[in-house]
Design a protein around this nucleic acid. Structure first.
Lengths: 160, 160
DNA sequence: ACCGTTATCGCAACACGTAGCAACAACAAG
DNA sequence: CTTGTTGTTGCTACGTGTTGCGATAACGGT
């Protein structure tokens, strides 16, 4: 994503941005934006749907997901997939970052922009590939689990 | 994953391996193994379900997915998530590899073990994190799309 | 204030997986 | 061969998103 990021949240601009593109400013979108304003860091899609329903029980999931798509296209959000495959949205203000997720203990860590850049540098250099760092989640075993756990087969199950 | 990989397919050993662990060798599992023998490279979960149904219309999705879990635990398979979030299974013989997926043109590329290793090296060195390379998919823009495409917002939609 | 265009909504149906649970059947032991 | 144990199956229901479509409502123009 290349648009607004860092600094105070751009919610105020969004309305104008939406209208400037011939898109429409609706009650539903306002509500979703309100929810996003109250959120921070990472939120799953269903959590956002849930929070919208708290404000207005009539909220429909499809509308929420479609609006999230639009906001992502406009560059105000990004999402990645956790190891479970569920969507995780990154809500500003959060600098763009990637994730590390341990399949044994389930813990996650963030990779800051620099660290993430060093990870994708080889594919950029050798293939000219411009990685979407915000979407990146690396699954594996964290230092602690890698050393003392002997991959207990039954417990490892949670990789999907 | 650390088990059988490369070389001729290990299907013959699987039966014994399963039984040796107190698990059971059933008709359904045989059928799924048959399907896997006939497959190669990447297959999505639902494709595997579909192929099993061709051989036996009575096949149930849950059984297939559970068996895939077991095979993955035993190290005979691995899976990753495409940009769409769908599961992609890597069927031997394929060396362990990671993926690059272009969000503009949808094309994917494989990163061989060496290249993948150079990608995850920074997190290994700085955090002792043992990445599960086979699960890794890096989303972004390929060289061609990155240079000549000006991120046509409508077309980019397919990032989820 | 009214109209026409067309983006957006809400709904219902679908797609892909997962979870709980009762019935079943592998398998080892006798 | 019969039996007991317990891993597996199939079913049904659920969770999380997506898609198609007719009805609705934003918004620019008059």
């Amino acid at each position: 994503m290349s648009a607004p990021d860092a600094g105070p949240r751009p919610w105020g601009r969004i309305r104008d941005d939406i209208k400037a593109r011939g898109l429409r400013w609706t009650r539903q979108r306002m509500r979703i934006l309100e929810v996003l304003e109250a959120a921070e860091g990472h939120v799953t899609g269903s959590e956002l749907v849930e929070r919208c329903r708290e404000r207005d029980p009539a909220t429909t999931p499809s509308t929420v997901y479609r609006t999230l798509d639009v906001l992502e296209e406009l560059g105000y959000l990004s999402h990645s997939h956790a190891a479970s495959g569920r969507e995780e949205f990154h809500v500003p203000p959060v600098a763009e970052h990637a994730h590390l997720e341990c399949r044994i203990c389930g813990q996650t860590w963030e990779l800051n922009a620099d660290e993430a850049a060093s990870v994708v540098e080889p594919v950029a250099r050798r293939r000219g590939f411009v990685a979407d760092v915000g979407h990146l989640t690396i699954l594996g075993r964290c230092a602690a689990c890698a050393t003392h756990a002997r991959i207990p087969v039954e417990d490892a199950r949670r990789g999907r």
